[in-house]
Design a protein around this nucleic acid. Sequence first.
RNA 1: UGGGGUAUCGCCAAGCGGUAAGGCACCAGAUUUUGAUUCUGGCAUUCAAAGGUUCAAAUCCUUUUACCCCAGCCA
Length: 539
Amino acid sequence: MEEIISTNFIEEIINEDLREGKHTEIITRFPPEPNGYLHIGHAKSLCINFGIKQKYQGKCNLRFDDTNPSKEDVEYVESIKKDIKWLGFNWDLELYASDYFGRMYECAVGLIKKGLAYVCDFSAEQIKETRGTLTEPGAESPYRNRSVEENLKLFEDMKNGVFADGEKVLRAKIDMASPNINMRDPIIYRILRATHHRTGDKWLIYPMYDFAHPLEDAFEGITHSICTLEFEDHRPLYDWVKINCGFVPGPRQIEFARLNIQRTIMSKRYLKKLVDEKFVEGWSDPRMPTLSGMRERGYPPEAIREFCNRIGVAKANSEVETSMLEYCVRENLNQSATRVMVVKNPIKLTITNFEGTEYENIENNQNIESAGVHKLSFSKNLLIDAEDFAIVPPPKYKRLVPDGLVRLRGGYIIKHTGHTVDDEGYVTEVFAELIPNSRSGQENAGMKVKGVIHWVNAEDAVECTLNDYDYLLTEGSGDFSLRMNKDSHKVIKAYAENYLKDAKPYERFQFVRTGYYSKNNKSGLNFNQIVSLKDSYKG
RNA sequence: UGGGGUAUCGCCAAGCGGUAAGGCACCAGAUUUUGAUUCUGGCAUUCAAAGGUUCAAAUCCUUUUACCCCAGCCA
């Protein structure tokens, strides 16, 4: 096989394994527990695992790690599948840890027969008490030296429902004095009477992660089992199970640093709390950092993948700035989104020297020649955004001012001639006259103007709602208390070009900000710059 | 205090003994009918710190420091 250039440490490991002839095909897996929706952190793992599949022309399985029925639900398996597809990945095999319960049981029996596992009668409290501490060794259980026959019988009884939940557990017999707490006779099977979303009430005992995971990987012939850093301490146990159940050399566990994004909640537990306590409308609320939430916002899946490529893979804990993600979204939308004019806070603009109706050709996307144009009607009754006219302009203001000139994007240059204000001093209507022959290509088109503003024809503009997604759910500085504002999700009423009327059924527009008007505050995404319809990204 | 990890620009991140890639952010300028895009230029004499080895060290050795993870019958 020809040498593959590696771009991160995981690929380096794989390359070395390949060089040493350990494998002929590389197989990875994405193993979510169906207890919540996928979020941007999972996207990183997805990109790593499916990226390896693609790079080495191997395989990547989707395996639901459903070993704890008390937390899992089919709703989650469906959402997970949908989100992975949306992100653009195709798994080879769709598997469930629960399909292996029988084989896992046999492996446990095998361990007992080898004298490497025993049934322990300790209560949860007793196990905790005898586990020792970080600095002190644990104490051996008095049940540790039961005979193989007795253990076999007891374990079978556990399976057959002879005992109550928590009455007994199966433990691996390793080393209660190990400095690695995971090796202090870890529990590998517990009794749990809960209806499993796939196996129903067939099983009363369920394997623990540390026992189940290496077996799942081994059963499937996974070559590289990629997980996050917190499992580094579990690797000795992973290998212990693998070896003692007879899978040698078997899969190799590799750990990488999970993704953290500045001020973004990335823990399933807290995301679930937000959903359960109705801080949001659900897992797919556009404020959520879930893949489905991002889909609702109009984030293209390609942008998320690009983000994952750019942040890289390493073992150092890090926290990526949100500007990195936003950049990827902007970069993609810049090349794909149809530009549409939208006025979010409308004031009337009356053109005093124009009658009738004309049509302007609006470029769908200036960055793509083939994107074409669409028509926008023009009349004397227009709407512009309140922010685009200022009686007293702030410094460096580039839009309409009293007696000033400004270009209506895609149309004429206009000159301010007057305006009216209400009792509180807010502008209610602006009057202007257009400069004849000032449209693109015409003789007066070259006039110097302050800037270019958005507008819509009041006579046929459509009302729409926009998500003001300034607000991604964020944690308060330094703590995870759920004190974000419930109202932080603004849905703005706005007016858009009539062109959008027939676009597609939609409830809300998503828009992306490409820069704020204020120079020192342009880290966000820009309102009237790029508009993408969320439906265009429905996968 | 036991064990396992990690430290390279504000944020990610290459680098694997031969004299600090790249991206984001930021700054300056040019183009521009989106204050966008695009384009050009600037942004680590220094790699957590201190010693040492070497002609040569971010890379090797020693010591120190900081941060992260582990005591669920969760994953």
